[in-house]
Design a protein around this nucleic acid. Sequence first.
DNA 1: CGTAATTTTGATGGTCATCAATGTAAGTGG
DNA 2: CCACTTACATTGATGACCATCAAAATTACG
Lengths: 253, 253
Amino acid sequence: MTDVNNTQTVSQFPCDNCLRSGRCLGSVVVKAGADHQRASEVTVVQLQRGQPLFRTGDAANAVYVVQSGALKARRTSYEGDEEILAFRLPGDAIGLDALGQRMQNTEAVALCSTRVCRVPLEALHRELRSSPEVSEMLFDDVGREFERLHEHLQTERRPAQARIAAFLLAQLKRRQRLFGAQIDRFTLPMTRVDLGRYLALATETVSRMFTRLQQDGVISCDGNAVQVLKATALEAMAGAGAEERAPALAKAA
Amino acid sequence: MTDVNNTQTVSQFPCDNCLRSGRCLGSVVVKAGADHQRASEVTVVQLQRGQPLFRTGDAANAVYVVQSGALKARRTSYEGDEEILAFRLPGDAIGLDALGQRMQNTEAVALCSTRVCRVPLEALHRELRSSPEVSEMLFDDVGREFERLHEHLQTERRPAQARIAAFLLAQLKRRQRLFGAQIDRFTLPMTRVDLGRYLALATETVSRMFTRLQQDGVISCDGNAVQVLKATALEAMAGAGAEERAPALAKAA
DNA sequence: CGTAATTTTGATGGTCATCAATGTAAGTGG
DNA sequence: CCACTTACATTGATGACCATCAAAATTACG
């Protein structure tokens, strides 16, 4: 089955094969519906890299949950270039910002091969009234997203190096939670350009910061494959400002 | 009656004397409760200038709606100084970002004498299931707040002058909606310091921008009383970048 | 294997934070 | 009511951080 956007609807049983099953908005809605003998209207959408889940102006008639893969939430700035509001990883909800709006104000684009759960607003509204678990999960997601935006605002007010450090740390922790293990390496699904557009930095600055982090032995990376060597150093950089960055050339004169 | 925070609970009939009655989350919850013969748990809180509605770490057991006055939503940065996430005017919801969280991550402080409607989360959850109007109003508020944050992120990526222009325009439109009239003058409830902490600008920069706007005849202001003389010029500045700011000294060499 | 996209590195300049000082308003207590 | 304190606002001088421009190097891909 193929819809307008040329995306693929995959399965009637959205939670089959999904690792997030039971811990996401989609599955809670599915369960609430099943408890009342209602057929699930939740479907799975498969996207290829670069393919949009929805575009600005599309009718906002569903929210989504990432099953696997990654997406970026984008928006077009006054100057006409892309601004990235968020990267979405498995478990993340998409489209909560369109609650109460008629149209999407943002665009969601897959960064790689990606599976997404589609929860129609109609179903969400209905099951919201039928089961308190739904509203709890929804509130959780909404609260988390607000919290993330607030953190992001703070991050953007800090020097470039701190922004990158904070971003890498967030990614690291996110993966650790996702896999439930103490990993120290991962592959970034986004390009340096995307990263710049997310952190409000020029691509060149992003690149320079990566270079510096490697020189300082804080990370090691090959392309988008990153290994965190000194997590504590990253935390220090993310927390501290520029003041205590390079004690090296301090008194070199 | 006085609670822990030394705030005052005013009336058993929260919507009496409130101009937002019927058009806010609070009144919808009150109505939904009344329709089911439930006593309203919605109360009105009176705050003086500088007084907090809640603090970081407080139990997040209610959301609020501004009846009159103004507040700022603040947070403490890594460096320990204040960061302002939002200013709240009559009709605005407060504390939506704490949905799904146990504690408040932000602090809400009155900028002047202010009345706020307090809606316990318990009541919200209950009426959410009893009446679709509640969820619709809640979704509206949530969506609007996301939208505002997204706009704010964009604004912070623009030059200082554009940020101030965008802010003034937003204030202007907000007041016009509030009063339902084409006003061109209003009094800002916040100081230049607050403004800087909201727009991520040094106080000095804020001041300089106000000075420049007056010199250019775009606004006229006496302290916090602002009159917008050329709204279109403001829009141009808010939209455009720094490139086309001063056509004056362009070819003066 | 050639074209395009992305990444990296260097040089330069602009915007705005910072430091410093003065001016103004607001509030306090004698 | 007036000195005094404290907060807020304005204006100027200086420099840091990072965007921008330019170009080379690497990677991706048809």
